[in-house]
């Protein structure tokens, strides 16, 4: 019998994974400054782990979070303190720190049981501020707002010493997280989360415990943010309150929106798109833009991101991933039926 898992197009996965593996070699062949590009890709990879988690929470479950930079910070600082001050091995911290972050996620999840939408956005945003205060207050461990140097990742005696090494470490996790998230979201859990988003009544009628699943969504999302935080701390090797700005939380949400909510792949594409735009593309043409537009260079970044989000919401609410799906159908049918009928 034809099941829907035939739809999950596995034949794309293997080439994509191979591309991820050979990409750094291609870059190294193509340019001297490959490490610079790897660094940007590493940031994108770390953020991807987080935005996949954000997609679970805000995309699938419909619980808006503007506090994910806070979870990222908790993961990063927890791991930095555990590894460098308590002597916990990095490998153990990779498990423990995300779990601790997950507990914070549950904590933030409690208000989400009673409020939603904008108010939840504001509450989680407040959480982001509280994390910053907390980091400053716990200066015995965090060195306050001066920032903290962090050791390199060491796994099984191997030290990840540079962007090249870090790339493989980070993208290993990216692949695992994406595959895992995709699986989980295609199972009972994903269906339950979407049901909560679209109809709490239907969800309860089929036996979904709202409290448990909402808290679980916060937990899982925070765990992934925490994992991103651990990788962030040890591969960037310096963390400070300046890294975990409220603006970053907003960018995370934009990444998910632009990529296409509740698809996981959308979060991946959106994150890549925004990070590459932010680090590589906008710096190239922002002076040029400012030369004929009556705006300050400073505002161009926000302006561009604002426009992109606006355009996507109006014209392409399914995001980049939705565009890709349409394109694929188009190519499949190309010579015979160029008119796409959406199902």
């Amino acid at each position: 019998m034809k099941g829907r898992y035939d739809e999950e197009n596995l034949k794309w996965i293997a080439p994509l994974i191979i591309l991820v593996i050979v990409l750094p070699f291609l870059l190294r062949g193509a340019t001297f400054s490959y490490r610079y590009y790897l660094y940007v890709l590493n940031i994108a990879g770390i953020y991807t782990i987080l935005t996949v988690g954000l997609d679970l929470l805000s995309g699938y479950t419909g619980l808006i979070s503007l506090g994910h930079a806070g979870f990222l910070a908790i993961g990063a600082y927890t791991s930095a303190v555990l590894v460098d001050q308590a002597g916990v091995p990095f490998g153990l911290s990779l498990i423990v720190s995300p779990l601790i972050t997950g507990l914070f996620g549950i904590l933030v999840g409690f208000p989400a049981l009673r409020i939603s939408g904008m108010y939840l956005g504001l509450t989680t945003m407040g959480f982001g501020f509280i994390v910053r205060r907390l980091i400053i207050a716990l200066r015995t461990w965090t060195e306050g707002s001066a920032g903290l140097e962090v050791s390199k990742p060491v796994l099984f005696g191997f030290t990840f010493a540079n962007d090249w090494h870090n790339y493989f470490l980070i993208y290993l996790f990216v692949i695992v997280v994406v595959v895992f998230a995709r699986r989980v979201m295609k199972s009972k859990i994903g269906r339950a989360l979407m049901a909560i988003r679209d109809s709490e009544h239907a969800a309860q009628a089929v036996g979904i415990n709202l409290v448990r699943y909402k808290l679980f969504a916060f937990f899982l999302s925070a765990v992934l943010a925490g994992l991103a935080g651990v990788l962030f701390a040890h591969t960037m090797r310096f963390i400070s309150t300046d890294h975990f700005d409220i603006l970053l939380s907003i960018y995370f949400l934009i990444m998910v929106l632009v990529g296409g909510v509740a698809t996981i792949y959308g979060a991946v594409l959106g994150t890549l798109f925004i990070v590459l735009l932010d680090f590589l593309a906008i710096p190239l043409f922002k002076d040029w833009l400012a030369s004929f537009m009556a705006v300050q260079v400073a505002d161009i970044q926000s302006l561009i991101f604002g426009c992109i989000m606006f355009l996507f919401i109006i014209f392409q609410p399914m995001g980049l991933y939705g565009m890709w799906l349409k394109m694929r159908i188009y190519w499949k049918l190309f010579p015979f039926n160029p008119k796409i009928k959406q199902t």
Partner: peptide, 15 residues
């Protein structure tokens, strides 16, 4: 759940 397939909507009942 509009953005799930018919099959997924039905499977939801199996929760």
């Amino acid at each position: 759940i509009p953005y799930m397939t018919v099959l997924d909507n039905v499977l939801l009942g199996n929760h």
